[in-house]
């Protein structure tokens, strides 16, 4: 089945500010879903609260716009109950690293197979520009009465420390690479984290597109800007964690069926969402073994 990019777009009016990085991210999400040809009813975008929260309304798959800071909790519940779904959670830096930081760490430990994208612009855009947890100490973006008094959290370091098994960073204005990163994140079996840098054209007047591009930092020799953003892959960095292969010479391998136990819960083959629970309005669950154990 050929998937068209347009199939993954809704006709919902978009009220993000012109120049917002969110446009690039939502485009990359739609492109990634189309390229992977994921059937629309097999994908769900969960989003938090903030400008980025509206992302789920712009993608024509199941779209669950949740609560501030809680996107990961809703998304994990759905993925655990129905592992057939491709689940992408999206939210802002304040949503995920401020009010939702506890869930960020806990989700990393849990390593559920889904993707989490943080739209990182250093400010709370929807509430008119307060400092977010990723704004650097001492910066004074235009809404701040005083320079930021808090250290910035490093989302990448926090993700690694929390146990995310795939950690990446993209740039909202490099949609093609971002699309590839999203595809890799979705294909990764485990929890994938994607930190996406962007500008907030309305409230972050410091970390702007020009700032990322280094327009304020011109090389005197070449007269070219020195960009603050670069591609790690250009440095021949190998992100894959290699585990030494076991010493097979000393291993004796048994060739036989050793154990078969179908009574172990298998949430991939028998997930909560597909278990039949009733027939003609009657329960088909047999609790007699448990009741027997309580019999006096």
């Amino acid at each position: 089945m050929e998937s068209n990019l347009s199939d993954y777009k809704t006709e919902v009016h978009n009220d993000w500010c012109p120049g917002c990085g969110d446009f690039g991210i939502v485009n990359a999400i739609q492109m990634a879903l189309a390229e992977m040809e994921i059937p629309r009813h097999k994908a769900a975008i969960f989003s938090g609260i903030g400008c980025s929260g509206k992302t789920s309304h712009f993608v024509n798959v199941y779209g669950i716009h949740t609560l501030h800071g809680r996107v990961l909790t809703f998304a994990q519940g759905a993925k655990l109950a129905n592992p057939e779904m491709t689940v992408v959670a999206a939210g802002g830096d304040g949503d995920g690293l401020g009010i939702g930081a506890g869930h960020f760490v806990a989700a990393g430990r849990r390593n559920v197979d889904m993707t989490y994208i943080i739209f990182n612009n250093g400010v709370y855009g929807l509430t008119k520009g307060q400092a977010s947890p990723t704004l650097k100490l001492g910066l004074q973006t235009k809404s701040l009465p005083e320079p930021n008094v808090n250290q910035a959290v490093n989302p990448i370091a926090l993700a690694v420390a929390s146990g995310f098994t795939f950690v990446a960073r993209g740039y909202a204005y490099d949609v093609r690479q971002l699309k590839d990163l999203i595809i890799a994140a979705v294909k990764h079996r485990g929890l994938a984290f994607l930190d996406v840098l962007q500008q907030c054209p309305t409230y972050n007047d410091i970390n702007t597109r020009d700032w990322f591009a280094g327009m304020d930092n011109i090389d005197e020799m070449t007269k070219k800007p020195r960009p603050r953003i670069y591609k790690l892959e250009d440095t021949h960095f190998d992100p894959v964690v290699h585990i030494d292969s076991p010493d097979e010479e000393n291993e004796k391998l048994t060739q036989a069926l050793i154990k078969s136990n179908e009574w172990v819960p298998n949430y991939l083959e028998n997930p909560p969402a597909t278990q039949q629970i009733s027939y003609k309005g009657k329960s088909i669950t047999d609790i007699s073994r448990i009741l027997d154990s309580l019999q006096v």
Binding site: L67, F74, Q76, A78, V105, Y267, P272, A273
Partner: peptide, 24 residues
């Protein structure tokens, strides 16, 4: 058959997961 029981990081997560699971 089986019940999936998840111990969460707090009650906010507990109810969030219940909602997510119920949506399926």
């Amino acid at each position: 058959g089986s019940t999936m029981v998840v111990q969460t990081e707090d009650e906010i997560s507990a109810i969030g997961m219940v909602i997510g699971a119920t949506l399926t």
